[in-house]
Computed example of a mutant assay.
Amino acid sequence: MAKTNPGNFFEDYTLGQRIEHAVPRTVSGGERALYHALYPARHALHSSDEFARACGLPGSPLDDLAAFHVVFGKTVPDVSLNAVANLGYAEGRFRVPVYFGDTLRSVSEVIGLKQNSNGKSGVVYVRTEGLNQRGEVVLDYVRWVMVRKRDLDAPAPETVIPDLAKVVPAESLIIPEGLDFTGYDFTLAGEPHRWGDYEVGEIIDHVDGVTIEEAEHMIATRLWQNTAKVHFDATFRPDGQRLIYGGHVISMARALSFNGLANAQLIAGINAGAHANPCFAGDTVKAWTEVLDKSETAAPGVGALRLRLVATKAGEAGQLMGEDGKYLPNVLLDLDYWVLVPV
């Protein structure tokens, strides 16, 4: 009996299949230290216990995207070990902050399947929940991934594409219990810009850039226990290049967005996301943001901004699509998400 696991291929998935992913993980200050070493992450709420307590929280929570990567990483051996590419995200909500000492695990359900016309691969849609040691859902999201077929003659499943919301409604965003920005310290946060200072349609060029290194990507992908072959094995792709984990690009772009959005302290939801083009070591990532919408919240001093965060390899801020309606070749990431800011 074979004891090794080659991972799931497209024909191994069935609609409604529930997958409980292995290896729970207890997070500590080590995750924060490594996260802040890998990215220029400087948001005050995730850097200082004292700042977080002044905002009504019991302490500084783990960076939202670090929690996302831990939950995501658990799913890779079962969902995307044999992936060609991770394609997109939707309906993401951050529900409960993650604190040091919390133990996270992941559970996924297959909610859609579509074989590609070439018969060599297919798209698998999964809804994933990350849970803590109390069984609370800390975050959940939908993603879809292109997965290779093992047996090209395996019959195609019935095509089911889930009907996903284009936007997480602002009224359904979950504000962390106790969050209060009425005494917010703008000096310590690094910028003076409030919720009311941002206008719908505004474009913010975050100016800075970071050249992606092979070594940092390997550290990041191992940190999140992401075992996808396209990230590690240079022989897995015809071009001999290791694909940079899309989450690495998301975190890099989010960190770069501090310059102009230093007060976007917490991520509340992910409306949509696409890895538009592959990223490889040596690419220099820059970022810009478009303000898509604004909403008030019931929490004291807290407002919500809906933002489009775009990571690019080159080009001017605001340039996204070509005349053919497709992403420009320099665009790496298009992420539509909600953040919480002081009013």
Results as ranks from 00 to 15, higher is better:
Lys3Ala: 14
Thr4Ser: 12
Gly7Lys: 02
Phe9Pro: 02
Gly16Leu: 14
His21Met: 00
Pro24Glu: 10
Arg25Gln: 05
Thr26Tyr: 12
Ala37Gln: 09
Tyr39Trp: 05
Pro40Ala: 04
Arg42Ile: 12
Leu45Asp: 05
Ser47Asp: 10
Phe51Arg: 14
Ala54Phe: 08
Leu57Gln: 01
Pro58Val: 04
Pro61Trp: 08
Phe68Glu: 03
His69Phe: 05
His69Val: 05
Gly73Val: 01
Lys74Trp: 00
Thr75Phe: 02
Val76Glu: 01
Pro77Met: 01
Pro77Ile: 01
Asp78Thr: 09
Leu81Lys: 00
Ala83Thr: 05
Val84Gly: 02
Val98Cys: 03
Arg105His: 07
Ser106Thr: 02
Ser108Leu: 02
Glu109Tyr: 05
Val110Ser: 15
Leu113Thr: 11
Gln115Gly: 12
Asn118Lys: 10
Gly122Trp: 04
Arg127Pro: 10
Glu129Ala: 14
Gly130Pro: 06
Leu131Val: 07
Arg134Ser: 12
Arg134Gln: 12
Gly135Gln: 06
Val137Ile: 07
Asp140Cys: 08
Tyr141Phe: 07
Met146Lys: 03
Arg148Glu: 07
Arg148Lys: 08
Arg150Tyr: 06
Arg150Ile: 04
Asp151Gln: 09
Ala156Val: 09
Pro157Tyr: 04
Pro157His: 04
Pro157Glu: 04
Val160Tyr: 13
Val160Gly: 13
Val160Gln: 13
Ile161Thr: 00
Pro162Cys: 04
Val168Gln: 05
Glu171Ile: 11
Ser172Tyr: 11
Asp180Lys: 00
Asp185Met: 13
Asp185Arg: 13
Phe186Arg: 13
Thr187Phe: 08
Leu188Gln: 13
Glu191Leu: 09
Arg194Ala: 15
Asp197Pro: 11
Asp197Ser: 11
Tyr198Asp: 09
Gly201Val: 13
Glu202Ile: 15
Ile204Asn: 01
Val210Met: 00
Ala215Gln: 12
Glu216Cys: 14
His217Cys: 08
His217Ile: 07
Met218Leu: 15
Ile219His: 10
Thr221Tyr: 00
Gln225Thr: 00
Gln225Glu: 01
Asn226Lys: 07
Asp239Ile: 06
Gln241Thr: 08
Tyr245Gly: 03
Tyr245Cys: 03
His248Ile: 00
Val249Cys: 05
Ile250Pro: 13
Met252Arg: 03
Ala253Pro: 10
Leu256His: 09
Ser257Arg: 14
Phe258Gln: 14
Asn263Glu: 13
Ala264His: 06
Gln265Ile: 08
Gly269Lys: 00
Ala272Lys: 15
Asn277Gln: 15
Phe280Gln: 04
Val285Asn: 00
Trp288Pro: 00
Asp293Glu: 13
Glu296Leu: 04
Thr297Gly: 03
Ala298Cys: 01
Ala298Ser: 00
Pro300Ile: 03
Gly301Leu: 02
Leu305Tyr: 02
Leu307Glu: 05
Leu307Met: 06
Leu309His: 09
Lys313Glu: 03
Gly315Val: 08
Glu316Cys: 11
Ala317Arg: 07
Leu320Asp: 00
Asn330Gln: 11
Leu332Tyr: 06
Leu333Ala: 07
Asp334His: 07
Val339Cys: 01
